[in-house]
Nucleic acid binder design. Structure first.
Length: 736
DNA sequence: GTGAGCTGCGTTTTT
DNA sequence: CGCAGCTCAC
């Protein structure tokens, strides 16, 4: 590479590999980007390079991500780098871009112009209704399973009619799938998986549309490619002409097979391999230099992931220092674990470090509870990721349902939600009649309701109530359609009685609901259709509704408060923290019980472990509990196999230093006693958490004790035979 | 229409 | 064990 190239401002601060990826000639590329290797940076600089050096129009570039957050970050950084608008560029999520295609070509795919998006909550309610209408045994068939089945098939690109060779169970799900799809089609509703499936069918079946986009998008860049499922892969392939079309299309995929943690929802790591087979002359570039973690952390993470087979192969390295060893805390139970973590955070904070630099990672959400209790007790502020998001809140969804009805009367899901919210005398009986009528006549609920009133199938109070509702919606549209969006929403919320309903409720919860409704009006006032990447020819209302469905909104505010972050290992992906705690690293928790059966799932757990470890910049603390209460039952665990895969020299073992009986689950001690000094030894003469040896049972850890004097008993979790209660006087335990 | 009381369920999550 | 969702009685 000559000097003029290396001095290009876009290549300035990049390492050789990054530079090679950014300045590569136009071609298909596979960038294997390890954790913390500057992946987004490469992607962003590559786009800028295409614009500046190859003088490509922003119009000819598409960049695809999985989350809105990633898309927004990419757009922002590209804009900052090239200093001009990127509006013409298609940067977005798979779902967002598919939605865009469907809006632009709704007629070609047989959708009404006002089609609405069904989120997974809506989808489940819809399925529940459909399964009732099919008179299925509710003990045997669950909407949840049906939802799983349908989405999995759609993710594979399969429609109900494509399914054959099914067993009896699947046959039923197929029927549900078909009925559900017919209902969605009638109502103009599109679920998330449907966005992708239908966009793919559009490109597949419509040569004119397909060729138009193939001509347009000279470069397609896909982030997190290891997380793509079958339909997403097929979609990219279709858009790019498979890389062998008559047009010059180039696809760049960026990903890390070691960070594929979404196999359970249909992601296929093999898509990375498949890309190499499908596209000609793919250049592979590996980004292995890590700019995030200490050498110790990387060595440990590399050792763990090395236990997986079928890897593309990659080893992270750093020019940085060794750093501190990884601490391993062996807790006697989950409360001890939580208390230890809280004490470590206190120490960290006292040394002048920020709490927001600390993350607590766990395998499952249920684990957060005990951690929260300990943090609360220690008065350490914390924030939990993955709560309910704005557009997912009940009251907000109610309001949106009214708006959806204004946009599209046939939206059955919306109608079901609000026809009797607030209550207006339309009870279960009346609704059943309307549902039956709709099914028999193959109409939407709205149309059926109208007909049934007209034909006097519905009479008296019921007819009156239904009529009032119909008139309310019609009138609302009439009167507010000329309003600006914010005004319109404000009037709809009030005239529908929704606001009054929540105002009448009392309590803190109700107050928040009222606040949220006001906030929705606010969001509408500030909504910028173009900023949201919605086409101009979409009505503002439809644009907003699509926006609400596709981006369920940010998490709650108060982000400015310095607080520890709690989240699952999955949601930690892509983030980094100076201090990371990985908790509950026990066999049966992590790897989870359910992953034991299949090697593939175990490998995914290991990748999750790799993801977790590589979040840590300076210091990683791993902990596990010998005993843990799960669903009200005491479980005894051993440390996770993943811990054993870390080189011993990188680990620093810690056991409980000052034992307190409260951690031995004695009654009446409360969950977290103040940390005043407690006797380190139990009345048995053994320390809680201490390692002991028994002639027959081998080695184990002291977990608990009860009684005193000659009857005193002690509970030991033996490595080989599990937990046992022993009478100390007879057990002849030795200290290890 | 509302609330007590019962039942069933219980990785991981984005769109 | 803790919850959400549902039923049934008023």
């Amino acid at each position: 590479m000559d000097d003029s190239m290396t001095q290009h401002p876009l290549l300035d601060q990049l390492n050789d590999k990054q530079r090679a990826a950014v300045s590569a000639p136009e071609r298909h590329m596979l960038v294997l980007a390890g954790a913390g290797s500057g992946k987004t940076r490469v992607l962003v600089h590559r786009i800028a390079w295409l614009l500046q050096e190859y003088h490509l129009s922003p119009y000819s570039i598409m960049a695809v991500t999985f989350t809105n957050k990633a898309a927004a970050e990419m757009r922002g950084r590209v804009e900052a780098l090239v200093g001009s608008s990127t509006r013409a560029m298609w940067i977005g999520t798979f779902h967002g871009l598919a939605h865009r295609l469907l809006r632009a070509h709704y007629m070609d795919v047989g959708l009404p112009q006002n089609f609405q998006i069904l989120d997974s909550d809506d989808q489940q309610r819809m399925l529940k209704r459909i399964m009732r209408s099919l008179n299925l045994d509710e003990k045997r068939w669950s909407p949840k399973q049906a939802q799983w089945f349908i989405n999995a098939k759609k993710d594979e690109g399969l429609r109900a009619e494509h399914l054959d060779g099914l067993d009896y169970n699947e046959q039923t799900y197929k029927e549900i799938y078909a009925t559900y799809q017919a209902a969605c089609d009638r109502a103009g509703l599109v679920d998330f998986a449907e966005l992708l499936l239908r966009a793919h069918e559009l490109l597949r079946d419509n040569a004119i549309v397909r060729e138009h986009y193939q001509r347009r998008f000279r470069h397609i860049l896909v982030d997190e490619f290891q997380d793509t499922n079958a339909i997403q892969y097929a979609w990219v392939k279709m858009l790019s002409g498979g890389g062998r079309g008559e047009n010059e299309n180039f696809v760049t995929i960026v990903g890390d097979d070691d960070q594929s943690i979404y196999g359970w929802r249909g992601a296929k790591i093999e898509n990375i391999h498949q890309f190499n087979r499908d596209y000609p002359n793919v250049e592979t570039i590996r980004l292995e230099q890590n700019y995030r973690s200490t050498n110790t952390i990387l060595t440990a993470a590399n050792s763990v992931i090395a236990n997986n087979t079928d890897r593309l192969g990659k080893e992270l390295w750093t020019e940085g220092g060794t750093g501190e060893p990884i601490d391993l805390y062996a807790a006697i139970n989950e409360m001890d674990e939580a208390r230890y973590i809280a004490s470590r955070i206190e120490a960290w904070h006292e040394q002048g470090n920020a709490l927001q630099d600390v993350a607590l990672l766990y395998r499952s959400n249920a684990q957060s509870r005990v951690l929260e209790e300990a943090l609360l007790h220690a008065r350490i502020p914390y924030r939990i990721y993955g709560g309910l998001r704005f557009f997912d809140r009940q009251e907000v969804k109610d309001a949106l349902a009214y708006l959806r009805l204004l946009a599209n009367r046939d939206d059955d899901a919306a109608l079901e939600r609000v026809i009797n919210t607030p209550t207006r005398g339309i009870g279960a009986r009346t609704l059943d009649i309307v549902r039956d009528g709709a099914r028999q006549r193959q109409l939407s609920l709205w149309q059926a309701a109208k007909q049934l009133v007209q034909e006097k199938v519905l009479t008296g109070r019921a007819a009156n109530a239904v009529n009032t509702f119909i008139e309310l919606i019609d009138q609302l549209e009439d009167e507010t359609s000329d309003d600006l969006l914010g005004k319109q929403v404000d009037r709809v919320i009030k005239a529908s009685g929704l606001m009054a309903m929540y105002e009448a409720e009392k309590g803190e919860k109700a107050e928040t609901r009222v606040e949220n409704l006001k906030e929705l009006v606010n969001a509408c006032e500030n909504f910028d259709q173009l900023d949201a990447n919605m086409e101009e020819d979409l009505t503002p209302l439809n644009a907003f509704l699509a926006h609400a469905a596709l981006e369920s909104g940010e998490e709650q505010a108060d982000e400015y408060q310095d607080a520890v972050q709690l989240m699952t290992l999955h949601s930690a992906k892509g983030l980094e923290f100076p201090l990371v705690f990985m908790c509950g690293v026990e066999e049966g928790m992590f790897p989870s019980q359910q992953s034991f059966e299949e090697a593939g799932r175990l490998a995914e757990e290991r990748r999750l472990c790799y993801v977790g470890m590589t979040r840590a910049m300076q210091k990683l603390v791993i902990s596990y509990a010998e005993q843990r209460r799960i669903y009200g039952q005491e479980k005894f665990h051993t440390q996770s196999r993943f811990i054993g895969e870390i080189p011993a020299e990188n680990l620093h073992h810690i056991r409980m230093q000052s034992a307190s009986p409260s951690f031995g689950r004695q009654p009446n001690y409360g969950r977290f006693r103040t940390s005043a000094s407690h006797e380190a030894f139990t009345e048995t003469g053994f320390q809680l958490g201490q390692r002991v040896r028994h002639a027959k049972f081998g080695e184990g850890t002291v977990l608990n004790y009860e009684g005193s004097g000659p009857q005193s008993r002690i509970q030991v979790n033996f490595d080989d035979v599990g937990a046992k209660w022993l009478v100390v006087a007879y057990a002849r335990l030795d200290r290890c």
